[in-house]
């Protein structure tokens, strides 16, 4: 079913449009019903989409619009999430490399890797916050930890996916470890790393927003809880919901774009399917005749 939807949306933009329109329609019906039944502040439960859109230009103070406020807070959170993401990516890459180079490192590191993954982020965040004492640093650390795991495990899976015969081929050419990694292991593991990054990116965004809620001050999460407590306009909350959803999707899409730019040419190759169009077969036969002659 999922594939079916994906196929339709990738081939026909209008399907995506219909989906969005249907979603908006359901939302608006809900908002209208709530608007008619709830007497006080129905927008606290579910505002109309146009109300949210209009709130973008509404002022929250003399100098700032709601949207401006959201953006300031978004920058505080997301710039840290990005730094953490990059650190986690580098650390995950290095650990996967070490684990694939040394069985001993793998045996020692792997249980810790699993352990980190098993601790819920809600439990880890206060510990990190009390250890670092700074919300900005905490955001970076949490985003890094969350990115680290999928990158490390996916890359390790990528290294392991290299077939025995490919290893033997390198062996038969008496290639050293460096050559083996540059020419075989890393190119094989790259698509796996991107898979890990695609999982990690929205998680890093979510986690850093979550970390914000632990402490007051600046940050998307702070603004989110303030807005829900009606310390500031409720529309800040709705704008954050839309912006973080968009950012989550955008971050994954951005990585997909980088992926297609770097390893794009072989994405079809990786699916392992042989393209055997009639035209190709004909060329193949022609080619074969040529060699025979």
């Amino acid at each position: 079913m999922k594939n079916f939807i994906k196929r339709l949306t990738s081939k026909n933009g209008w399907v995506l449009f219909v989906w969005l329109a249907a979603l908006a329609a359901v939302w608006e019906i809900g908002a209208t019903v709530i608007g008619a039944t709830v007497r006080n502040h129905p927008e606290y439960i579910l505002p109309h989409l146009w109300q949210i859109a209009a709130s973008v230009v509404q002022p929250v103070s003399d100098t700032q619009t709601i949207f401006g406020l959201v953006m300031v807070n978004a920058w505080a959170t997301l710039s840290r999430a990005l730094v953490g993401f990059l650190i986690g990516m580098a650390a995950g890459f290095v650990l996967a490399l070490l684990m694939s180079l040394s069985r001993a490192v793998e045996k020692i590191a792997f249980p810790y890797l699993m352990l980190i993954q098993m601790i819920p982020i809600l439990g880890m965040a206060p510990i990190v916050l009390s250890l670092t004492g700074d919300i900005g640093v905490s955001r970076i650390v949490i985003a890094a930890i969350l990115t680290f795991y999928p990158v490390a495990t996916n890359m390790l899976a990528g290294f392991r996916s290299v077939s025995r015969e490919k290893h033997e081929l390198m062996y038969s050419y008496a290639a050293n470890t460096f050559v083996k990694y540059v020419k075989m292991m890393l190119p094989s593991a790259l698509p796996y790393m991107f898979t890990g990054l695609k999982i990690a990116a929205p998680m890093a965004v979510t986690a850093s927003i979550l970390v914000d809620t632990l402490q007051g001050g600046v940050g998307l999460g702070c603004l989110l809880s303030q807005s829900l407590k009606h310390n500031t306009s409720i529309y800040a909350f709705w704008e954050i919901v839309f912006i973080s959803a968009a950012l989550g999707i955008l971050s994954a899409k951005l990585i997909g774009l980088i992926e297609s730019l770097t390893v794009g040419g072989r994405l079809s190759a990786l699916s392992g399917r042989l393209i055997r169009s009639a035209g190709k077969e004909k060329r193949y036969e022609k080619q074969a005749e040529k060699t025979e002659a």
């Binding site: 015969e165 490919k166 038969s172 008496a174 190119p187 040419g265 072989r266 990786l270 392992g272």
Partner: peptide, 19 residues
């Protein structure tokens, strides 16, 4: 002989680097 690269190997599967 291997270090001197005196043989070439062909496997059951083509073992091509798909990238």
């Amino acid at each position: 002989a291997r270090l001197a690269r005196k043989y070439g190997m062909v496997f059951q599967s083509p073992v091509l680097y798909e990238w």
